[in-house]
Simulated assay, not measured.
Amino acid sequence: MTTYIPSLTLPAFVFEQPAAAILLPIAAGTAVGFSISPKETQKTYLDLRQPPLRPPPWVFGPVWTALYGAMGYAAYRAWTTGMNSFDAKKVVLAKHGATLYTIQLALNLIWTPLFFGFKRPIEASVDIVALTGVTGYLAYIWGQVDEVSGWFLAPYLAWLGFANYLCIGAGYLNGWSFTDKEKSLSEKPKNN
């Protein structure tokens, strides 16, 4: 079982207010996405060898926005259900989940800089595997507090499974190094 660690957990007001709970991961994800030039990120994504079933770059923005919103709603719902419960176990699980939620959000937010900013596929792969494990455990914990909260994390877990495939696949297909693998856009043949 996990433990509630206040110093590693977002403040309670983030979980108590639905707007804050939903908008925080959306805003943080958007900020991280734009902290690395979206044009440069897209260029890297298109230039690297990728495994089959790679989605087009425009898919990621809408998908992640929806997943961040669902993740935030799950956080709000699990916290308020747990903290308003007369069952002491649910209160403890809601708090433990809040710590796990904060950890998974941090792991989520550092993936983009690792993969696209620093071009470190090994570290990005380790991060996304850890993120998936923490999120799976979080869904289990919050599912005991409120079943709907646990299920709200199911699409996120499914996408993380697919993201593991893409991340590890790209790392493997590019020899676990992105240096010298990218071609400048000017070197690519133009489609007329």
Rank of each mutant, 00 (worst) to 15 (best):
Q104L: 05
Y137M: 15
A88D: 12
G175A: 01
P113R: 01
T112M: 07
T99F: 02
S186F: 13
Y45E: 04
P11I: 00
T30Y: 14
S149K: 01
M1V: 12
A21Q: 01
E40A: 15
E16I: 08
G29T: 00
V134M: 04
S125A: 15
R54C: 12
T41N: 12
E147K: 13
P113E: 02
N192V: 13
M1T: 11
A28M: 09
A98N: 03
T9S: 08
W159P: 09
N174T: 01
A94T: 04
T44F: 03
R120H: 10
W79S: 02
Y156C: 08
Y73D: 04
P6E: 02
A27S: 13
L67T: 04
V129H: 02
K119S: 12
L166E: 00
T102D: 00
T3V: 14
K119V: 03
N84E: 09
F116Q: 08
Y101N: 07
V126Q: 07
N108T: 10
H96C: 14
I103C: 07
G136H: 04
P6V: 00
P56N: 07
L166Q: 09
I103L: 15
P189M: 10
V91F: 05
A19M: 11
L23K: 07
G82N: 05
L173D: 04
S184K: 13
P25L: 01
I141P: 06
P25Y: 00
T9L: 12
I36M: 10
E40D: 12
A27Y: 06
V91D: 01
H96V: 11
A70I: 12
A154K: 14
Y68C: 12
Y137A: 14
H96Q: 14
P62F: 05
G169W: 00
Y165F: 10
L67G: 05
A75K: 05
A163L: 14
N108A: 09
L153N: 01
S186T: 14
K188S: 09
P57E: 04
L114T: 03
M83Y: 05
A78G: 05
I110N: 07
L24E: 04
V129P: 08
I26Y: 08
A20L: 15
N108I: 06
R54G: 06
A154E: 08
K188Q: 12
Y156H: 15
V126S: 11
W176L: 09
K90E: 06
L153T: 05
P6L: 05
A94L: 07
F15I: 00
T179S: 14
I103A: 15
Q17D: 15
A27R: 08
L67E: 06
A106H: 05
N191V: 11
Q104W: 00
L185M: 13
F13K: 12
S37W: 02
P121Q: 05
P11A: 02
G175Q: 01
L157E: 07
K89V: 09
V92Y: 09
K119M: 13
T80D: 08
